[in-house]
Design a protein around this nucleic acid. Structure first.
Lengths: 147, 147
DNA sequence: GCAAGATGTAATGGTTGATATTACAATGAT
DNA sequence: ATCATTGTAATATCAACCATTACATCTTGC
């Protein structure tokens, strides 16, 4: 199973918010047209990013904006905001190993710390990448006139 | 989304194969009863582990056995054997960003290398854990008489 | 006030992948 | 030949993702 596209959509959204904050009002329709998904999907992710304290969204008048410096918004923040993983565990464990088998009754204990190590390695790397890194790359491309 | 339980099931299977290789014939029914899932699920995973060159399975007479030393079977080997991730990418990207938007037409390029870094961090850790580590822990527990 | 433009959210449906289960042909040892 | 077993197809259930429609709610501007 893959990590859902909500994550890359959320990064895309934040990048748009930062890029166009001076030029446009950032509505869910605006974001939806850059990302090419339904505006309701966008609004749900906006809610999750808001709940995580990364952005604010104005009701009535409309418009979303980032309320953290881009250097402080890590991929891990975004991942945790939108990926509703059960009890925060990356790996799905088979539920009912046989307690009458020496392997069955111990496998969970034995694997738990190892799987957590793997998950932490992944989260450490997610934490090392920020929205500012994305903005830097984007500006390089745009200034370079490549695209 | 979580990584499917096929992975932990596969580790459980290999651990059983190694643990009981002298005492029992390792059939899909035998494994299914330790793991508590349907034998057909087990057989499909046996096939995947066989295709990956980690085990052999005897037809007719029945019985599965590991054909690599446990120190050489890494969690990454098992992960790759059973997790049929599309094009080997952990993250699912939204497919059709708007090419007329400066962000939309560049986001894929910008994110690709960053997401690969995350995936590689995870795979590096998976590679550092072997079936021998699991066996060591299991033997410690069983010899210690704790369980 | 109230119209206009947004957001928040519920309800519904299609699609995909995971897992369970039944069934049965093919295999190989005895 | 029998029998236990594997390999695999077919089918069903279930959960999660994503799309979409609909509408109540909110704010601003007139």
């Amino acid at each position: 199973m893959q990590i859902s596209s909500r994550f890359t959509i959320a990064i895309h959204m934040l990048t748009c918010m930062e890029t166009f904050k001076e030029e446009y009002k950032i509505t869910s329709d605006f974001l939806a047209s850059s990302i090419n998904v339904n505006p309701v999907i966008i609004r749900r992710i906006l809610s999750q990013l808001k709940d995580a304290g990364l952005i604010e969204v104005k009701r009535g008048t409309g418009g979303a904006a980032i309320i953290q410096p881009p250097e402080k918004i890590t991929f891990l923040d975004v991942y945790r905001a939108v990926e509703c993983i059960e009890e925060n565990t990356l790996f799905h464990f088979h539920e009912n190993p046989n307690p009458e088998c020496p392997v069955g009754r111990n496998i969970h204990n034995i694997l738990d710390d190892k799987l957590i190590r793997v998950q932490e390695a992944m989260e450490r790397e997610l934490k090392a990448i920020t929205l500012a890194d994305v903005m830097d790359d984007l500006e390089k491309i745009l200034r370079g006139g490549q695209q």
